[in-house]
Design a protein around this nucleic acid. Structure first.
Length: 452
RNA sequence: GGCGACGUAGCCAAGUGGUCUAAGGCGGGGGUCUGCAAAACCCCUAUUCGGCGGUUCGAAUCCGCCCGUCGCCUCCA
C-alpha cells in the first residue's frame, strides 16, 4: 500500500520482503483518563494494522506507556498515591476503553519503568559515542552534534525559536539539549544508574522499547502529529546516533489532531471529552465511523451532531445486513472489494472506503427489493466493515432500563386500542411516550420501542 | 517572527491537470409502506470548488498574491 511518510514528506509504497510489519505506536502517559483524541489515534492505527493484516501481512504491534514523568509524579502526589498505582489505574481503564472501542490489543504494551536497563544501555552507548554527557547526575543529549537534527519536523536549528527552555536546576551545556536521564529529586521515584540515582527523561523510553521489542528499523512508527516535534525528532536523534545512523523507521506516520471547537483537544488545555463520556453517549461503531469519516492526516472537529449523524448512517448499514436474501439474481461483489482496497491502498483513504460501504448497502437494498441473492454481498459488507473495526452490532439500549415493563404495558394497552380502532387514544399514548423520549415503531411483527 | 497544513453544497467530507455538469454521509424535498405516524427503502438535492490574477488546448486540481482558519516551534495522541 501507499503511505505518507512525515520524514520524507512523500507518499511511498510500503513493502515488506518477508511479509511482516513492525509497528510501534506512541501510546499515552497514564496520568489521567484518556480523551477521545487518544481514541482517535488508537482507532486510526488499529485500522492501519487491520488493513495490513487483511492484506496478508503479519503485524507485530507495540504500543508503549510512558509511566514515569513530571506529570505522573505530580498527579500521584495530588492524589496521595504512588506513581505506580496511578499508572496502573489509568492503564487498566485505558485498555478497557480501547476494548470497548473495538481496538485490537497490541502484541506488547511495554512500560518505561520496566525497561530501565535497556534505557540505561542506550544512554551509556550515547555517552560512549560522545552524543551525550553527564552533569551532576543528569545526562543530556547533544543536539548540535547530530547534523540532521530537525529532519523529521523539517526545521533547522537556527530556525527554531531561541526559547528552548532551561528548567530551574538544569545543567545543560546548550539550551537545545534535552535530558536523557534526570537526577533524583527528594520524594520522587528513582532507579540506580551509572550516573547516580534518577529516572529517565521523556523521549528515551520509546527508543529503548522500540529497540527492545522490534529491533533497529521499524516499518511504521506512529503517533499524533503533536509528537512530531520534539518527541519523535528526539527519538530519531537518539536512536540513530546509537545505531550508527541506521534509520529508525521506514515510515513515520502521524494522524491529524482532534479539535473541540476551534482548538486542538488536549489535556493541558483542559478542553477534552473523555473516552468514557463519549462511549456513554454513542455506540462504538458510530465513534469509529466518525473518526474514519475524514482522512487520518486531516484535523477533525468533534461535535455531538457529527457523531450523531454517523449513528443515523449506521442504521442504514444495519438494515442492509438484516435484509433476507432471495433466490433471484446474484449481487456480485468483486467491484466493491476492489474499490475498497483501492481506497485503502491510497494512504488509508477511509472516507472513500466508507463511500464504497454505503454504495454496497444501497445496492444490497435494491437487490433485496427485487428478490435478488444478496447473501454474498452481505458477507463482503461484514468483511470490509471488520477491516475498519466496525461490528455493525445492533443498538439495543432499550432492554435494561427500569421503565421497560411499564413501557411494554402501555404498548399492550395501545395494541388493544388499535385493535378496537380507538386510534385517537392509541396515538396519544404514542405521542406522550415520544415526549418522554421513547419512540414507538409499529410493524407487522408488532410494536418495537427504543430510547431516544 | 519561523515552519507547515487547510479553505469543496445547509453541515461533515472525498477528489489534486481532461472520465468532475465534483464520491459518500447527515440534513432537506418528493415517493413507497402505514388507520395515521415512526422506522426503513427508492428518487432528487453544488454548471461549481475562499477571493483575484497567471500557466495550459483544458484547473477544484499547477503557480503568484490576498483573505480566513488551524497545528508545531521543547507538556501534548
Amino acid at each position: 500500500m501507499n503511505l505518507y511518510d512525515t520524514l520524507t514528506a512523500k507518499t511511498k509504497e510500503l513493502t515488506a520482503t518477508d511479509g511482516s510489519i513492525k509497528m510501534y505506536v506512541c501510546g499515552i502517559t497514564p496520568y489521567a483518563s484518556a480523551h477521545i483524541g487518544h481514541a482517535m489515534r488508537s482507532i486510526i492505527f488499529d485500522v492501519l494494522r487491520r488493513y495490513l493484516e487483511y492484506k496478508g501481512f503479519s503485524v507485530k504491534y507495540v504500543e508503549n506507556f510512558t509511566d514515569i514523568d513530571d506529570k505522573m509524579i505530580a498527579g500521584a502526589a495530588d492524589m496521595g498515591i504512588t506513581v505506580q498505582d496511578l499508572a496502573e489505574k489509568n492503564i487498566v481503564a485505558y485498555l478497557d476503553e480501547m476494548d470497548a472501542l473495538n481496538v485490537k490489543r497490541a502484541d506488547i504494551y511495554p512500560r518505561a519503568t520496566e525497561e530501565i536497563p535497556k534505557i540505561q544501555e542506550i544512554i551509556s552507548g550515547l555517552i560512549d559515542k560522545d552524543y551525550a554527557y553527564a552533569v551532576q547526575g543528569d545526562v543530556y543529549y547533544k543536539v548540535r552534534k547530530k547534523e540532521d537534527y530537525g529532519k523529521l519536523g523539517h526545521r533547522t536549528l537556527d530556525t527554531m525559536r531561541v526559547g528552548a527552555r532551561i528548567e530551574p536546576g538544569e545543567l545543560k551545556n546548550d539550551p537545545l539539549d534535552f535530558a536523557l536521564w534526570k537526577a533524583e529529586k527528594p520524594g520522587e521515584p528513582s532507579w540506580d544508574s551509572p550516573w547516580g540515582k534518577g529516572r529517565p527523561g521523556w523521549h528515551i523510553e520509546c527508543s529503548a522499547m522500540s529497540l527492545a521489542y522490534l529491533g533497529e528499523t521499524l516499518d511504521i512508527h506512529g503517533g499524533g502529529q503533536d509528537l512530531v516535534f520534539p518527541h519523535h525528532e528526539n527519538e530519531i536523534a537518539q536512536t540513530e546516533a546509537f545505531n550508527n545512523g541506521k534509520p529508525m523507521a521506514q515510515f513515520w506516520v502521524h494522524n491529524g489532531l482532534l479539535r473541540l471547537g476551534e482548538d486542538k483537544m488536549s489535556k493541558s488545555l483542559g478542553n477534552f471529552i473523555t473516552v468514557k463520556e463519549a462511549l456513554s453517549k454513542f455506540s462504538t461503531d458510530a465513534l469509529r465511523l466518525f473518526f474514519l469519516s475524514s482522512h487520518y492526516r486531516s484535523p477533525l472537529n468533534y461535535t455531538n451532531d457529527n457523531v450523531l449523524a454517523q449513528e443515523r448512517a449506521l442504521e442504514r448499514i444495519r438494515t442492509a445486513l438484516a435484509g433476507s436474501s432471495g433466490s433471484g439474481t446474484l449481487l456480485t461483489t468483486a467491484t466493491y472489494k476492489k474499490r475498497f482496497d483501492e481506497a485503502m491502498e491510497e494512504d488509508l483513504n477511509t472516507p472513500r472506503a466508507l463511500a464504497v460501504i454505503f454504495d454496497l448497502c444501497r445496492d444490497i437494498n435494491r437487490a433485496r427489493d427485487e428478490g435478488g441473492n444478496i447473501a454474498e454481498a452481505q458477507e463482503v459488507l461484514l468483511t470490509i466493515g471488520s477491516v475498519l473495526g466496525l461490528a455493525f452490532a445492533a443498538s439495543d439500549n432499550s432492554q435494561n432500563i427500569e421503565a421497560a415493563p411499564f413501557i411494554d404495558l402501555l404498548i399492550n394497552i395501545r395494541r388493544e386500542l388499535r385493535g378496537a380502532k380507538q386510534f385517537a387514544v392509541a396515538d396519544s399514548i404514542r405521542d406522550n411516550l415520544t415526549e418522554l423520549g421513547v419512540s414507538l415503531e409499529d410493524s407487522p411483527e408488532g410494536t418495537k420501542w427504543r430510547k431516544r
